[in-house]
């Protein structure tokens, strides 16, 4: 009975709905990032989103509207730094990420008025998601998933063997740019759900779980999506009934699935 009542709360319905879309998007994109050894770009861009949200609050804009273009620009900056400045990708991520955090901290210090708002984004709260955020999350998630579907074989080829992909006419530089831009959008969407500190977990954990269990690339995408979806639904439910922080609970459920997958693989295969 209590569970039925729980499902009738509109904030729970909104959290389930938006969370499901964002989680599935993260898992699909995360698989490409993990296999390309670019997992930490999610972490770096989430730090940039902190700075971007601080800038939005400082200027009086709605955080989503400011964060999406700023984080997308930062993702392109990471690519340019690693290409033009002859810096390794992880160092480029570190540079842009540090600028994001430093900018956010300075803006928070200068303004003094919005610290509570800003710091709520550090750990997220999907239960407080607004109607406009639900609509944006669903639309942007669908756009990201459609782009992944559209470029599926090019993404697969460039992730599996970039050099060979080039010899079959795959524009690998464009594919890398697409992956980075999609990651930027997905990171911003995820910040509301789990917060700046835990965004990378949503990108990495379902993909890492799927890689333990899958026997083909298509199955990896499906298993990752399913794991992410169940983790969000269970995470929100557990957090509600056990009075735990929602973002952290979603991440811990994901981590539990990963641990079970590793155990299963070691024991039964």
């Amino acid at each position: 009975m209590e569970f039925i009542n729980f499902l009738q709360y509109s904030f729970i319905q909104k959290a389930f709905f938006a969370g499901a879309f964002v989680a599935i998007t993260c898992s699909a994109l995360g698989l490409f990032l993990v296999l390309k050894k670019m997992s930490l770009i999610g972490d770096g861009l989430s730090h940039v989103s902190f700075g971007a949200i601080a800038l939005a609050l400082f200027l009086g804009f709605y955080p989503f509207y400011m964060a999406i273009p700023v984080v997308m620009l930062a993702s392109l900056l990471i690519l340019k730094i690693s290409e033009k400045a002859k810096v390794y990708g992880d160092a480029a991520i570190g540079i842009v990420s540090a600028i994001g955090i430093a900018g956010g901290v300075i803006l928070a210090s200068v303004s003094k008025g919005f610290n509570v708002d800003l710091f709520s984004y550090l750990f997220g709260n999907i239960l407080a998601i607004s109607n406009i955020e639900v609509i944006l999350s669903v639309i942007l998630s669908l756009i990201v998933l459609l782009i992944i579907y559209f470029f599926y074989w090019d993404l697969f080829s460039a992730t599996f063997d970039e050099e060979y992909a080039k010899t079959t006419g795959v524009k690998t530089n464009s594919i890398n740019t697409i992956i980075t831009l999609l990651t930027a959008v997905t990171v911003v969407l995820s910040v509301k759900m789990v917060g700046v500190m835990l965004v990378s977990a949503l990108l990495i954990l379902p993909a890492a779980t799927a890689l333990q269990l899958s026997s083909s690339f298509k199955k990896a995408i499906l298993i990752g999506g399913l794991t992410a979806l169940i983790s969000v639904l269970f995470g929100i439910s557990f957090s509600f009934f056990l009075d735990l922080p929602t973002g952290a609970t979603i991440v811990m459920v994901n981590a539990l699935f990963f641990a079970l997958a590793v155990f299963y693989k070691k024991t039964f295969t």
């Binding site: 296999l35 074989w153 080829s157 599996f160 063997d161 006419g169 899958s214 026997s215 083909s216 298509k218």
Partner: peptide
């Protein structure tokens, strides 16, 4: 990449992307 979960079928199909 030994982690990559590609089947033989999927890998060979990559040779058909050209054009």
């Amino acid at each position: 990449n030994s982690l990559f979960p590609a089947t033989v079928n999927e890998v060979v199909a990559l040779g058909l992307l050209s054009g």
